Simulated assay, not measured.
Amino acid sequence: MRLFVVLFVSLLLSNCAMSKPPLEKINGVSFVASRDIVNETHTNPVVNVGANYAAIMPFGFLKNLDHPEITHNTERQWFGETRAGGKQYIEALRKKNIKIMVKPQIWVWNGEFTGNIKMTNEENWKALEVSYSSFILEYAELAQETKAEILCIGTELENFVKERPDYWHDLITKIKTIYKGKLTYAANWDEFKRTPFWGELDFIGVDAYFPVSEKQTPSIADCKIGWQKHKPVIKSISKTYDKPILFTEYGYRSVDFTGKEPWQSDHTLKSLNFEGQSNTTQALFEEFWDEDWFAGGFVWKWFHAHDKVGGDQDNQFTPQNKPVETVIQSFYKS
């Protein structure tokens, strides 16, 4: 009998050692860069919504899709888009015990989609590689200096990744010599299945603008049904690489048909639909937040001046001062 008890206890301890402890969910906001220094007035609303993470987003700029030189960290940029601004934002959020993902992003003039960046010759590809390395390594240094928990090494750069895979593998190696925290990459919703370097990162990052409903005002049930064609694929990629999925961006506009093409940021859309925004967001939470292979995500997007944004006349992505803010708060604080 005594031998049986010893064996039973040994087996129990062995099983406990093999099981992974549950990860704290990343309940994040995408904290938009602005002209201003931020203070407690701007960080308190982040705490109030229940967020435990914020993505800090410095910017670099390209003149067009085939231009190889990224302009970054200059005096002509908004404060929050620079290294100094990023550091100040991080320090202000740290005072509220908010963890940090540093997520440098590229803006192509006229709002061209970054996934279509493509050089016309080898010389320019090499010049872009040099320029992008300068840009991302600058913020790898910032992430290490501020002990940011996560660094996102790029956002929606599918063509650049596809055309220059060796560069990206080498870049990740260089980043790891500077920054010692967790790494991810923000792949677009229709890109992540083809990203070649997930095995070298800590999170499979997805900007989760998946189409989930074609209805003018989708119900929660509609959206949950819509997720069933995407969710098994997302889960399978997580299983293939044995890495958790992180929604590096997620969110919906407060417009009609918000679940149809959630990536649309067209300012010509004039409709207002807060019910659709709330329902699509709640369905996403219900489908993903309890999954053990899902790390969490960063809602798109959160402005520093909480009392001056969003509200009942705003049809953009921000959840601030809209019914969906309560939906997010209910999950983030649960």
Rank of each mutant, 00 (worst) to 15 (best):
F285W: 07
I225L: 03
F303N: 05
K270P: 04
K301G: 07
W293V: 01
V255M: 01
Y252T: 12
W300A: 11
E214D: 08
I225V: 06
S238V: 04
I225M: 04
E287Q: 14
L269K: 02
L269S: 01
S236T: 02
N273L: 01
D242K: 05
W302Y: 10
D242G: 12
V299P: 07
P218N: 10
G251W: 08
F285L: 15
H230N: 00
Y250D: 10
S271N: 06
P244Q: 03
E275Y: 08
K270D: 14
E249W: 01
T258P: 09
Q228V: 10
Q277A: 05
D266N: 06
T281F: 15
V233F: 09
K301R: 09
I234Y: 09
W300P: 10
T217V: 12
P218E: 00
G251H: 08
G259D: 07
Q228H: 00
Y241T: 00
S254T: 07
Q282C: 08
K229V: 13
F257L: 12
N279E: 15
I225N: 00
K270L: 15
W293R: 02
S271M: 14
W289A: 03
C223W: 12
L272E: 07
N273H: 10
K239M: 00
Y252K: 05
F257Q: 06
K239V: 15
R253S: 05
Q216W: 03
D292Y: 06
P244W: 09
Q228S: 11
F274S: 08
D292F: 11
G259W: 09
V255H: 06
W227V: 04
F247Y: 10
P262W: 04
T248E: 08
N273Q: 09
P232S: 12
Y252C: 13
L272G: 02
I237Y: 06
T240W: 03
S213H: 04
F257T: 02
G296F: 09
G297C: 12
W302F: 13
D266R: 04
T280A: 13
K231W: 15
I237G: 02
I225F: 06
G226D: 11
K235Q: 15
K239P: 04
W300I: 11
Q282E: 15
F298Q: 10
H304R: 11
F294S: 00
Y241G: 00
T281R: 13
F298A: 10
W263K: 08
W289H: 00
H304L: 00
C223Q: 14
G259T: 03
D266S: 06
G296H: 09
S278A: 15
G259N: 04
V255Q: 05
G226S: 01
K270F: 09
E287W: 12
E287R: 09
G296E: 13
K231R: 14
A295P: 03
E249N: 04
K270S: 14
P262C: 02
E291K: 04
G251F: 11
W300C: 09
H267W: 03
A295I: 09
Q282T: 15
D242R: 03
Y241H: 09
E286S: 06
E249H: 05
V299L: 05
G276F: 02
F298W: 06
E214W: 01
E275S: 03
I220A: 01
F294E: 00
S213G: 05
G296M: 05
Q216E: 15
H304Y: 14
D256F: 06
W293T: 01
G296T: 03
L272S: 00
E286T: 10
L269A: 01
Q282S: 14
